[in-house]
Write a protein that binds this DNA or RNA. Structure first.
Lengths: 255, 255
DNA sequence: ACATTATTTTGACAAATATCAAATTTGACA
DNA sequence: TGTCAAATTTGATATTTGTCAAAATAATGT
């Protein structure tokens, strides 16, 4: 039976620090964890599968402190994660040994799927702020039995959707000007919040300015200045990590 | 039984111009089309499947003239393509109605996979120079019968690999300087040629300078100037679309 | 082979952005 | 709460890159 607590890779060393499997709670709440928190996440993967199977795989959400890594580049694949609360970034090392941010994951999103075939992780996932995640062990999928094929079909769906989203993402960030990139970045984030039923006009940036800069390929200072310019133009309000979009169409026009 | 000739979407209108199914050749050559041309392409998808099934799906490669589109954004999904010879670009329209290049496909590569779930194409695929392609009809996959699951498993593999490659791509092209982007672009192309057993030190750029510029988010003039600078530094030779990499480590150091 | 067109290169200049340094704000922790 | 470190903003300047225009080259069709 799969562990109910997600394994975490320490950001310091490369050790896998399995938390001890605390309590085997037999008294499940009537809802699966995913319904409980109101975010779909893994639900699409288990759609149409009997509930007892779902229960085996869906771990209750686990708190993860800021700075922890869920997995590290090169580490053997141990499963896929869903973000319930907070934010995660993934990065890989470039040829110069510099951290290169690949993506940000907000509540409702899945990460680690690329590792399914390679069987090891191709990026490192770091928790940006105190977060909650769910973990789906992929080494026990044989427990699904005849339902494996249904599961696989869902998997294909999710993978193609991610492919599409990444392409979209790519269009957004290979643009010329810093203004365009940042506007596109914010609109993209906002739409992703909306997708999971979270507020999309007033939301939170879980990452640092330098993370945004790294991700978009511009300097941190330009991020700061451009945010300011957007504020002066009454397109949005930014106080720290809190973003409020005031003129969505105006912002989209920039992107 | 699936058509053996790939459908082409005209770049002018949005009509699907099905070429008439020429001759039903019963006398198959002993090899499947894919083995014949020496490029894996679809083979991985049909690995482990009985050969007669493979034959139903694998069309002989078809010549496609420059400028033709294989599919258009929004058009219903009719299958996946493999490039045998030449080059393809895919693009989508951005919010300003401008063409935004999403990717280039060289011999041995598959395109159109993102459309599987959406059931319509999310980009337009245009042939950059006289090319040969194979077409895999996806609407007849029920002919696979019990083998469908094996097929699906391969599909998951290919999708995760593409996800990974795209992420990699992303790291390469969201970089700051034009030099870095172009060096990374060339190294990436070179590696992809190598992957399919094609020469990787002396290769061909099937796309225009303006396509490269669009893709990388820099200006055409900068592409030209940067290529020149690379030549002056003896990193490579470029004459027209012919690229010869002279100092691979040096180029990688830039990327 | 020629004329015509499309593509690429080159040059000059303006605009955008990176870089460096310092000041300010925010966040974390005792 | 106060203190320290981290993160962000701001300013000044140098560099890079985009833009426009023109020249050179390559490609295309007759």
């Amino acid at each position: 039976m799969p562990t109910q607590t997600p394994p975490l890779a320490d950001d310091e060393s490369n050790l896998i620090s399995h938390k001890k499997n605390s309590i085997q709670r037999k008294n499940h709440q009537p809802q699966v964890a995913c319904e409980r928190c109101g975010l779909s996440c893994f639900l699409e993967l288990f759609n149409g599968l009997p509930e007892e199977l779902t229960h085996i795989f869906l771990s209750r959400q686990q708190p993860v402190p800021k700075g922890k890594s869920l997995f590290c580049e090169g580490q053997p694949f141990h499963g896929v994660y869903a973000v319930k609360k907070g934010g995660i970034k993934t990065y890989a090392m470039d040829s110069k040994g510099e951290e290169r941010i690949l993506g940000f994951y907000i509540p409702g999103e899945l990460l680690g799927l690329e590792a399914i075939t390679a069987n090891y992780y191709l990026s490192t996932a770091v928790v940006l702020e105190a977060s909650h995640v769910c973990w789906l062990p992929f080494n026990q999928l044989d427990l699904l039995g005849d339902y494996f094929n249904v599961f696989q079909e869902h998997l294909v769906q999710i993978l193609t959707m991610q492919l599409t989203q990444q392409q979209h993402q790519f269009v957004l960030s290979a643009r010329q000007s810093a203004e365009e990139r940042l506007a596109a970045f914010l609109i993209n984030l906002s739409e992703r919040y909306a997708k999971h039923g979270l507020p999309d006009q007033l939301f939170w940036l879980p990452m640092l300015r330098s993370d945004i800069a790294n991700f978009l390929g511009i300097s941190m200072e330009t991020v700061s200045r451009t945010f300011n310019r957007f504020q002066e133009k009454k397109l949005l309000n930014i106080t720290g990590k809190q973003v409020q979009i005031l003129d969505r169409p105006g912002l989209i026009a920039f992107a």
